[in-house]
Structure formats: structure tokens, C-alpha cells
């Protein structure tokens, strides 16, 4: 079985994310890191490999992004991925989520994976939708926000099945999915491991292939800022609500007295 994991490089959580007002795009300066939600997808792939129900031949990390995104791939490799694929082309810059999913699907099609795993959301884009978009292009069944993923070998033979659990609008659902499939995992699915120093050092030696739009079956008119169907036509400030009172807790007795007084004033106690 071959698993592809989608990964993305995002601004570090400590960096204040902002939009560059001139370009209308995400400001890409500042520390960047592997999208933390993707580490759960990598860990889920490792769990399938180590679970022993099916033989996992290969785990491949796939990203689309500017040159710097190789750092996210190195991090993915240090967490157990075997090799990686970097879709990198100026023609892709400014792609909306639909165009991103379209291009990623083209890269994935070439790999013909049995399972595509991804994170529940990207920490910067927060679209929650790349998985469902990619799945439709690949004509694969798909589920998002999965927090329990078991691979089962059907008793009568045949391709393995996935048993997925997730929380939907009315409670927890359990869904059986036939491979090949696309699954986005929620952050409650596992505790990602920390990479060993040796794995970090060795990460750059693992195979990494860079692809451009011309290497894949991508219609250049459907990607990039100009090819995207959703256009960011402007930005505005949200209505400001008056800032709340902030208390830094230094002396807890005093803090508690302040909280009680605040509640009292509003007749909440």
C-alpha cells in the first residue's frame, strides 16, 4: 500500500499572521514551520505502517508552495516519511483553495496512492476543504475530521477497507470507506512523535523531487491568481468590539477578589 500525505508550510504559531495590503496575499515573512495539523496525518500514516494489518510500501509527502516549502518536507521526512514531492512554480502563486486542490490532485494522480492523508486544516488558510476538493478530482471517496482510523482486511480477501470515526453535526459517525480514498484527520487522532536528532540530520538526504506545472497534467488557465475562480476583491476591518478587561494573575487572592467584584457588579452572583 502506498500512502501520500499532504503537508504545508505555514507561519509559526508565534508569528502574527497578516495580509499584505498591497498584494492581498498572506505576508510570507517571518518564521515558518510545518503545519502542526499535518503532523497528525504523518503520524496516522506511521500508525498504519506500524500497525501491521497491511504492508505499507511507501509514505510520500506532497506539498505545493514556494521554494521555502522544502523545509516542511524535510520536517515530514524527519517524522518518518520516505520521500517527498514538491510542486513549485510561479504560475501557481496566488491560487485559491479550489485551484490548489486541483493542482495537488494532478501531482497525486501521478503517484497513484491507495490512501491520501491530510490535516484537518491549514493554520494559515483555514479552509478545511482541500481534502474534499482533491478527492473529487481524483474520483475517490473522502471523509474529513477523522479521529479514529483503522485499516481492515476483509475476511473474503479484496482490497483493505478503512473504518473511520468522526464527530459530525449530530454526534459521532462511523463510516466504512473503500480504498483508494482521501482522509483528513482531526488533531484528536493521535499524539505525533518527536523526530530523533538522527532523523533530523538525515532528512535532507532522502529523495525529494521538484515538479513544475509543465511536468503534470495541469491546465495553466485554472491555477494561480488569474486562474482562480474565487477572487479576493477587497478587505475590511471587522467591527471593533470594546476591548475587555485583562487581569494578569500575580497575586491569586487579589485576582479572585477582582473577578468576584466584576461578577458582582453585573449581578451574576
Amino acid at each position: 500500500m502506498k500512502i501520500c500525505v499532504l503537508v504545508k508550510e505555514v507561519p509559526d504559531a508565534a508569528v502574527r499572521k497578516r495580509i499584505d495590503p498591497a498584494s492581498g496575499r498572506m505576508d510570507r515573512s517571518g518564521e515558518r514551520t510545518l503545519n502542526p495539523y499535518d503532523t497528525h496525518a504523518i503520524e496516522a500514516a506511521m500508525a498504519i505502517r506500524e500497525g501491521g494489518v497491511v504492508e505499507v510500501d511507501e509514505i510520500v509527502a506532497v506539498t505545493m508552495g514556494p521554494e521555502g516549502a522544502v523545509r516542511a518536507l524535510h520536517k515530514a521526512v524527519s517524522l518518518g516519511v520516505d520521500r517527498s514531492l514538491h510542486l513549485c512554480d510561479d504560475a501557481l502563486a496566488g491560487s485559491d483553495v479550489a485551484a490548489t486542490g486541483y493542482a495537488l490532485a494532478a501531482a497525486l494522480r501521478r503517484e497513484a496512492p491507495d490512501l491520501v492523508l491530510l490535516g484537518q486544516q491549514s493554520d494559515d488558510g483555514e479552509c478545511y476543504t482541500v481534502g474534499a476538493i482533491v478527492a473529487d478530482h481524483l474520483a475517490m471517496p473522502s471523509l474529513t475530521q477523522v479521529i479514529k482510523l483503522d485499516v481492515e482486511s476483509p475476511a473474503g480477501g479484496g482490497p483493505p477497507l478503512l473504518r473511520c470515526e468522526r464527530q459530525a453535526e449530530y454526534g459521532y459517525d462511523t463510516v466504512e470507506v473503500g480504498l483508494p480514498a482521501v482522509v483528513s484527520v482531526g488533531d484528536a487522532i493521535n499524539e505525533p512523535r518527536y523526530p530523533s536528532l538522527k532523523a533530523i540530520m538525515g532528512a535532507k538526504k532522502k529523495p525529494l523531487q521538484t515538479l513544475s506545472v509543465g511536468d503534470l497534467e495541469i491546465d495553466a488557465a485554472r491555477v494561480g491568481g488569474d486562474g482562480s475562480a474565487a477572487r479576493w476583491s477587497g478587505f475590511k476591518e471587522p467591527p471593533r468590539k470594546p476591548a475587555g478587561t485583562i487581569i494578569e494573575d500575580e497575586d491569586t487572592d487579589a485576582t479572585v477578589a477582582q473577578i468576584v467584584a466584576w461578577l458582582d457588579e453585573r449581578k451574576l452572583i
Binding site: D96, A98, Y102, A105, T129, A132, A135, D136, A229, A230
Partner: peptide, 15 residues
């Protein structure tokens, strides 16, 4: 979210 995203892919629509 899932249906809207899938439909965007299917129709080449903006979302």
C-alpha cells in the same frame, strides 16, 4: 463544508 468543496471541484466553481 465537504459538499461545497466537492461541488467546487466538480463544477470548476469558486468557493
Amino acid at each position: 463544508f465537504e459538499i461545497g468543496a466537492g461541488l467546487a471541484a466538480r463544477l470548476g466553481a469558486g468557493v
